[in-house]
Write a protein that binds this DNA or RNA. Sequence first.
DNA 1: CGTGGCGTTGAGGTCTTTCAACGAGAGTGG
DNA 2: CCACTCTCGTTGAAAGACCTCAACGCCACG
Lengths: 247, 247
Amino acid sequence: MRTAGNTGGPGGEGASFAPVRCGVLCEDCRVRAVAVCRAMGGPALDELEAITTRIRLAAGRTLFDEGDPADGLFTLTEGVVKIFKMLADGRRQITGFLLPGDFLGLAFFRSYAYSAEAVTDALLCRFPRDRFMALLERHPALEKELLSRASSELAAAQEQMLLLGRKSAKERVASFLLALARRHPGAGAAPVPLPMSRYDIADYLGLTIETVSRELQAARASGVIDLPDRHHFRVVDRQRLLAAAAL
Amino acid sequence: MRTAGNTGGPGGEGASFAPVRCGVLCEDCRVRAVAVCRAMGGPALDELEAITTRIRLAAGRTLFDEGDPADGLFTLTEGVVKIFKMLADGRRQITGFLLPGDFLGLAFFRSYAYSAEAVTDALLCRFPRDRFMALLERHPALEKELLSRASSELAAAQEQMLLLGRKSAKERVASFLLALARRHPGAGAAPVPLPMSRYDIADYLGLTIETVSRELQAARASGVIDLPDRHHFRVVDRQRLLAAAAL
DNA sequence: CGTGGCGTTGAGGTCTTTCAACGAGAGTGG
DNA sequence: CCACTCTCGTTGAAAGACCTCAACGCCACG
């Protein structure tokens, strides 16, 4: 039997745990990702927990690869996960960074259309595909929630296409920082975590690491942002950052 | 009362018709877009027809604009429609070309996240949002079909992100031609219609019209494709076109 | 027959990439 | 505790891919 979380990738250690009972999942949901809970829907929650496996994924580890049989669906409860597609020669495009509460693996095909890898140590809930689908039949509310999520993901994808197709390097970086700041729960002036590497940022924005670094330094030099360390930034001048993003 | 199909845009003429009965919609579905029919689901068909309005849209006319209140959903039964987003300064990114059978306007928000405009003369079926949603409640099969569509659109969007973020101009044009050829029902050697302008192609691929033109001419000159006229092409050497697309 | 939109082609410019070197920090092993 | 190494990030200089600007031909339309 195939278990997610140990499909290769150097370093780190993936481990899958036995199914957990209501309390644990619910706690996690309520505490860490209210959205997940809502997705599950009240009545479906018990049934969902019965088919849940918890996955712990160390930073850098692969959850699944593009083309793998899509036998599982996931929700992220802790950490950051990136999903990406690759070309034969190694060029990579990261199509999204997932945060706690996000769904993952919603593929209505035989195999995953993209790869998923942990950016930081991550915690996920895994649902076997067939059992989840059966559950979907009995709970239209759950299906509605999934449709809603797919729809908003589609909107985000279109926004990203606009960025990749039509924005300059400066605009891409500014847009990225604003999106991160928007998703970050903290207050305005607090430092926003930047958990991904420059490689990841570059592959998300369709740039090179050098260009990302230059644009970040330029934004810092012009006083738009502050970079306390490599993995945090602070929005200093929101107006100018917004202007730079060409929204 | 607001009717789609006359929201501005120069030239052409949009017209909305009275609701049509079963026979007409069904005919259209069966003949032109089997996928639409399947989407509707057997039992839901009668109810769906009762809330259907047919829309005829002349080439170049706007169906709706980004930000408009999303009070309608559509299926395209004839023609080609483009959906796009724009930046404040006029830069445009076309995020998709829709063909007969495609769904449109699936926004679970208050307003459309993108604009839609006819590339060629087009025929659509319009469903009022609230009545369609109510219908969705009673027909889970329809909801499942929508989820399936949203899911495959998402996969297509990710593929396009890979193209926009990581492919060269040559690879983008080659990928575009292959995608068109794949969707075209005709046999291998038949000329494939290229209904959109060079402007549209450029804005879909994140390039300029000049670059698109140059790449098309280069592909023709190297014997990979044939360009009988401005709005048709023929795949001459499929292997080399595939190689050029960097799939 | 003039006009305007669209597509093609050429020449030059620019933004981003490529290539290269260097510094900082973490982990390793002596 | 201190080299040593490796990865990541930054910075500079040169190269290149695509864009911008411009001119021209074609065709539909009035």
